[in-house]
Amino acid sequence: MKQLDNEKLSLFLDNQLDSEQSLHLLKAINKDPALQTKLQRYSLISQAIKNDASQVASSNFVASIREEIRNEPTYLIPSRKAPANWKKTAWAAAASVLLGVSVVTFMTAREQAQPFGSIQTLAQTNKHYRTADNTRFNEYLQDHDNVWYVNNATGSQPYARVAGYSDR
């Protein structure tokens, strides 16, 4: 069973599990703290292998979100008076609700297929900024040490100290 779980987790992280199996696995993860920890660990390893920017949800991610929703304040906004052309408004409201339900259904389906989609997007955004910052920082670093000729790859370290003086 454990071997099966491991395989499923691995497939799940590689987006190779179908929606039904994903949903089933997520339910199992929700009930089993050990699986939650394993998911977190696998996710970290997977991210680390794929790229240098990793952002992983903690094991109590789902629980914390649920808690946040529960603690969300209730806003008591006074209702407006019904306008005279209530029929038009009712049709517009019905259309909005229908559109809203469609969007929510689509989002839920996508979320089930890729539960960490939003996190990945955030990580990618951060990575974009971080990569740009790293590029700039490396460029300054290499210029400062005159070590551009040593290695131009990101993350490479300068070895020869060649900080220099002015032109003759």
Partner: peptide
């Protein structure tokens, strides 16, 4: 100061000269 990359035999001159030790 210049650097020759062995793979490409490309020689690049450092933008800032120096008369101090490399190490």
């Amino acid at each position: 100061v210049s650097c020759t990359l062995k793979d490409t035999q490309q020689e690049v001159e450092a933008p800032r000269p120096t008369d101090r030790s490399l190490i």
